[in-house]
Amino acid sequence: MQLNDLYLKALNLEFLSIEEGMFLFEHAPLTELMLVADTLRKKQVPHGKVSWQIDRNVNTTNVCIANCKFCNFYRIPGHPEAYITNMGTYRKKITETIRYGGDQLLLQGGHHPELGLDFYTNIFRQIKQEFPTIKLHALGPPEVAHITKLEKSTHREVLTALKEAGLDSLPGAGAEILVDRVRRLISKGKCGADEWLAIMHEAHELNITTSATMMFGHVETIEERFIHLARIREVQAMKPADAKGFLAFIPWTFQDVDTLLTRIRGVHNLTTADEYVRMIAISRIML
């Protein structure tokens, strides 16, 4: 493989294979990767404008049975610090968000074993009734999978009910790395890679806009990062023509302080600044 051939392929908006992407990641000078990625950005967004979504992250509950090894947030059922957020708290936080120019609520939480579909649809309806202009960017595939299991239902039925109750878009939470070898090591209580992707495909079929994420810098290999990117790309290619599908991709590094993954398994985030920028650039090129 030649670097220049791969640059030209990317700049012609052709998808690079996993092997080609890995070759670029491992051999291309960072400045050249950045140039290709930025050129692609300018092709697709020629006006050069950058915008921000002003929102607030509010958690429904910190009770969770997923037992992810990288999470310091969750509490087991019955823990003295466990909580379920009440409407008074939502009301206060949404009012503050609107006052500061925000118009969206990022609403997520743990896998509570007793909170089913009615709990979430009731919250969504009440929020929309009191704050009709606030957008609900809420839950994520692992939570949809959890609710589906509790209800003995289907992904489509759960997503449809959430949308009817006020869900505007579905975050790409819980993707981590979309390879089950990795998920068994760091988040085996969550849905597997296939189910995460299937829920996103179902959301796109229902014209629910979504985002996608990747948490890297822990137990995954470089190849598994590229498998992750390719699988997201495949789901986006299957969306209906009138659906936006994935509207954003957000990669971030594993935050290792005080996590079980670090304390028990000795896994540390060793990502350098160079590697982080390299990952941002290659994500733009691959996607």
Rank of each mutant, 00 (worst) to 15 (best):
A243C: 13
E176H: 07
T221W: 06
I76W: 09
R183A: 07
T60H: 08
V267K: 02
N4Y: 15
H79K: 03
G172F: 01
L261S: 03
I54H: 07
I94L: 11
R231F: 02
H218E: 03
P171V: 05
G140F: 01
L197H: 02
P77F: 02
G140Q: 11
V277C: 13
I264K: 15
G192P: 07
M238N: 07
R125I: 04
E32N: 15
H47L: 12
Q108W: 04
E223V: 09
G189V: 06
A82H: 00
A237V: 09
T97L: 15
D256W: 05
C68T: 08
K239T: 00
A198I: 05
L270S: 13
A165E: 07
C71W: 03
H201W: 03
E81C: 01
N86Q: 14
K163V: 02
F246S: 04
L33C: 14
H111A: 08
I18P: 00
A165R: 00
I282C: 00
D274E: 10
F73W: 09
L8S: 15
A193T: 01
F226S: 05
P142L: 06
E14T: 11
P240C: 08
A145H: 08
K188I: 10
T95Q: 13
I84F: 03
F246L: 01
D258Q: 08
I127L: 04
R56D: 00
L162A: 05
I177E: 03
R125G: 14
D180A: 06
D194Q: 11
H218F: 06
P240K: 04
R181C: 02
T60E: 11
E195D: 15
L40N: 14
K69R: 12
K239I: 00
L35R: 12
R184Y: 11
L170I: 04
Q104V: 08
C64I: 02
W252N: 02
D242W: 07
M87Y: 15
M1T: 14
L159N: 06
L260S: 13
L40V: 15
E96D: 15
L24A: 03
M1Q: 14
V63Y: 05
L162Y: 05
F119C: 14
T39Y: 11
T31K: 14
I147V: 13
K149I: 09
L136F: 07
I199P: 01
P80T: 02
V50M: 14
L6V: 11
A66R: 11
A165I: 02
T89Q: 14
I147R: 03
E14K: 12
L8Q: 15
S153A: 14
T272A: 02
F131M: 13
A37Q: 06
G88Q: 08
V179D: 07
L16P: 01
A248L: 08
S153W: 13
Y74G: 00
F124L: 10
N269S: 12
V58H: 09
F254M: 01
L13E: 13
G109K: 04
A145I: 12
E114I: 12
Y7N: 05
H155P: 02
R75P: 01
R181P: 03
G102S: 11
K190V: 15
D103P: 09
I222E: 10
A198C: 14
L30V: 15
M215D: 04
K152H: 10
V58R: 02
T95I: 10
A10P: 04
K188Y: 10
F226Y: 03
S187K: 00
Q104E: 07
F25Y: 11
P251A: 04
K128N: 07
